[in-house]
Design a protein around this nucleic acid. Structure first.
Lengths: 215, 215
DNA sequence: GCACTAATAAAACGAACGTTCAATTAATTC
DNA sequence: GAATTAATTGAACGTTCGTTTTATTAGTGC
């Protein structure tokens, strides 16, 4: 009863991460035991400690990966265009697509922050702030260019992010609405919320094809 | 080593509830131990069981009280007027005021649902749905009356509620913005989001005095 | 095929958990 | 002021927790 046939470190680690995201999203970090996680992976609890020195290390690794992915996704989606409407549309589309695709991981990253040590919490919040700052910049540029009408850039950015991220609370793929429909609605609401002047036709973004719909 | 001088059941129960809301909001339900809670109240852990038979009973009691308070607050704030803009403004103002005043309890009610038994979860969700339905009704009536331009009433209601409730995540009383300023901004964003026709001057609501600001 | 390393199991650690129970004292009732 | 009730303590229960240690087997390099 020791090393099992076909065992592979990389596969086990990946399975642990995947199972952990799912379990933490469902039960919460504190409520998930290492034995439960191990059982889900099909391994003994002690085996987990070969990959993650502590339970909190596991949580932090998951969160950091999620935030890095979010920042990378936006870097890849960020349009070259300087047009504020195009840039805002790209932000909204990327945010919604990313969060719907990774509902569980987003849940973990948003709900379990209090289980991190102070130092690691700071690290995650720094990444989150950097991501939010991107939206504030788009909004401020747009307001200065006269494309948006915004009272308070910071407040508006927070309101938009909360609104968009909230999608993961109620949206279930395959139900009444498609991802494209949801994205189109949120895009429309966003543009109205920031008082976008209806230049560029109906603010049809350039971004990825297929998930944008006329407003 | 028994009953202490000046001890009073009602006061102790109230102190337990207050301390529990604060502790659960800060640490999370699973992470808060009954001994920790008892220490905060200045009592031994066993004393808590005189008021709440189990830890989950305590959580449920807090959540139910919070949701009942929210529904009652809306019933009291609901305007007699049939004007959609007035009704929507009242909903937004009540929602933001209530949630800012009870940040901790809202946190608990929104984040700890998974720690409830199935039956009790259903009970809380029923109340939440009833509250959300009030907003959907306002939106639908407004759309039918031509006062709002709304794609999808259900989706818009969820987006608005997420946006408004998100206030408790970043808002801290006494910082840059006052409650009145925040409420005014959210009111303005809400009206633009639903495409409110700018009837009734600038949608100046009738509701409570003092916390509404011209848009 | 032998030495070495990677991956796991099995068992155990002390600590903390929610909860219960019996004893004890303060307040209240008559 | 005795009897009764309300409020709490202190100690203990069995369980579960995250983690560590040791032993054992599967795969890898030569």
């Amino acid at each position: 009863m020791a090393r099992t046939t076909g065992s592979d470190g990389e596969k086990t680690e990946a399975a642990v991460r995947e199972a952990a995201v799912s379990l933490i999203a469902r039960l919460g970090y504190e409520a998930m035991s290492m034995r439960q996680l191990a059982a889900e992976v099909g391994v003994q609890a002690a085996a987990l400690y070969r990959y993650f020195p502590t339970k909190e290390d596991l949580l932090f690794t998951l969160m950091r990966g999620h935030m890095e992915g979010l920042l990378r996704a936006w870097e890849a989606a960020r349009p070259a265009s300087a047009d504020p409407v195009t840039r805002l549309a790209a932000y909204v589309e990327n945010h919604i697509a990313f969060h719907i695709e990774r509902r569980h991981a987003t849940h973990v990253s948003n709900m379990e922050l209090r289980s991190l040590s102070h130092e690691r919490l700071t690290q995650i919040l720094r990444m989150r702030t950097a991501y939010e700052k991107e939206l504030r910049t788009v909004l401020r540029d747009g307001a200065e260019a006269g494309a948006f009408e915004i009272d308070d850039t910071g407040l508006t950015a927070m309101a938009l992010i909360q609104m968009m991220t909230g999608v993961i609370v109620w949206f279930r793929p395959g139900e009444r609405l498609s991802i494209a429909e949801v994205t189109a609605s949120y895009l429309s609401m966003t543009m109205r919320l920031v008082g976008a002047t209806i230049s560029h036709g109906t603010a049809r973004p350039s971004g990825r094809a297929g998930d944008a719909v006329a407003l």
